[in-house]
Design a binder for these strands. Structure first.
Lengths: 196, 196, 196, 196
DNA sequence: AATGAATGAGCTTTCATTCAT
DNA sequence: TATGAATGAAAGCTCATTCAT
């Protein structure tokens, strides 16, 4: 039934994204989602098996959007530094536009069902792998070096998340600042500048 | 009369810390906390006004422990690089020992009460200020430079949080790795090494 | 969808009236009301915000019924003595039919909410004013005299309440007896008889 | 154990009288009574079997005080009119001094235990009989007439209760007003005046 | 298909009562 | 005897889910 009316399912997802971002899973009532989406409670259950199903669908859907968009953006770029900046830009832009989603993603632990858990985990890993890949390209280019690319990727994600959390209003310059910090740390460099 | 067992409140706090770390606030039942602490529901309410009070007390208590411990540790150190490493070490150690608490801290948003909110915020800010202070000392020492110390502090916290979340089993070398990454980024440095 | 059964709210009110009359507010469980009304707990809360809301709705509804009925009855009567007897008759009949309600009315003090309190008070005052009005008509007619009409009205209400409380089984002749007592007291009168 | 320390039991009763008068039985906590009486919860249970026992003891005790005081006062009076006025005066004074008690008495229905119920009923009846007796004396004196003395007694009690409830601040003149109303009703009398 | 009334398990919180000290 | 910490039954209320219409 999930496909009865895609536009309607999308509207439900949109509303859910907003509400789940504002309050925690257990604080958002299915009734509220239905009301704000302009449908009835029963309709929500026609498109989604249950509340958790809606929640997981929402996360997977959004993560997928971000992933695909980012993939496309970096496809046209050759320099790993440019790719890195693009990934960060996409991420910052995406989360700044949907601030609630930042919270949402780290609440991946709600799920009880194994199927859901692994789907979520796969989606997360896929995005992380994108970062790891780019870091390995940085290594390969010989201008930078990361002993442990995955650790570096995690660190970068953490930097994005935490600064966005408290600095979302200053998101404009954030990507450059973050990439600079990530690549150069606090070293008093004279060269190796990135991002104009 | 039966005398108030001083260990009892602590045991409740300990159990609560574990459970709130494993599951979300709304998924932890007061009854479970009581049961696992070996007391009755009523006893929990004798020590804490309500569930939120217990929750906030827990966070404040733990944050305070971490803060005080860190404060003491860095008191004896003169080099800002050493201080930085110590703070990260304390943080990593603390959160690795109580993994659940990592989740806990970023759920500071539960509280509806203004009093609680500000207390939590103050506690968070106090720890952040510790980091900012050290970063400013790094600046002052002339060996490093951060344009925006608070942003850098946030970034460092994010790095710690995210890597710990997924690498808590490899916490041993983490502090050095993180400080290296934070100070030097991915630059191919020959000098400015930290952490032995 | 299942259509809202208009009789259902009424059935809940009826059951609530009976139970709140038999036992005190705090001794009546919402679950019992639901069970005796043949609905579930949740249904009660669909029709009424909370227990107090149900309670207040109940009192206001009943008081209003009594008031309207009484107003209509006396509208067709010209003699104040007849009006007085009618009011008492309506009151006695109403409370004899719903004995529990007598208790209910004097428990108007449950409400903590200002809105509820004033609504209840207004409803009470409105009925009292009806009595005061009639007593003033008795004064104006010149056949009777009350120094303090409101005090007299209160006294009459007290007489009704107390006698009904213990004599509800003899409610038939009560209105005439009460009016006689109220108008003539214990005086050994030869004239001024009322109530045929 | 009820007699371990009469002064202490009395203090508990006093406090209980005040609290039970201000709020309903179920809204007064044993803990509050204990605290305001300056004893511990356990001590309350040393003097009274349980909460209901305390409650019933309180009512019986107070009713008894009123009864005995009234008995003594009217013992020296010969005219039934004077006796009547005295009874009303005692009642008004008693309830005006302890306004909470007015509420308390009509909450005699809390008790589940048959023993308690009958004790309370007996106490109530005893006071009512005092009134009935006086009314019969009024009849016997030939100056007044009540067809149904018990009904008249009930009516008088209701008048007292209801007017006191809303006019306790004007309790001074109330006894005379009530007795006048009770004896003469609203008749435009020229004689048969009572109360100076 | 869509609705929303109805359900009832489940949660927080209170408080009379007990009993170890 | 006095205490008050501990208990746990009980009650109010919520909300995900169902299903008659």
């Amino acid at each position: 039934m999930r496909l009865a009316d895609p536009a309607r399912a999308q509207r439900i997802l949109d509303v859910a994204a907003r509400l789940f971002g504002q309050r925690h899973y257990h604080e958002v009532r299915v009734e509220d989602i239905a009301a704000k989406a302009g449908v009835s409670k029963g309709t929500v259950y026609q498109y989604f098996k249950d509340k958790e199903d809606l929640y997981v669908a929402l996360i997977l859907h959004s993560l997928n959007c971000l992933y695909e968009r980012t993939r496309q953006t970096i496809a046209g770029l050759t320099q790993p530094e440019e790719r890195l900046l693009s990934v960060v830009r996409e991420g910052v832009q995406f989360f700044a536009a949907q601030p609630y989603f930042l919270e949402l993603i780290q609440r991946v632990d709600v799920s009880r069902s194994a199927a859901h858990s692994s789907a979520l985990d796969a989606s997360r890993t896929r995005f992380l792998d994108l970062l790891v890949e780019i870091i390995e390209q940085l290594n390969a280019a010989g201008r930078w070096h990361a002993d442990d690319p995955e650790l570096a990727a995690l660190a970068l994600m953490g930097m994005m998340r935490e600064t966005l959390r408290w600095r979302s209003h200053l998101a404009d310059r954030l990507p450059e600042q973050l990439v600079d910090l990530f690549l150069n740390g606090l070293s008093k460099r004279t060269t190796n500048q990135v991002g104009r």
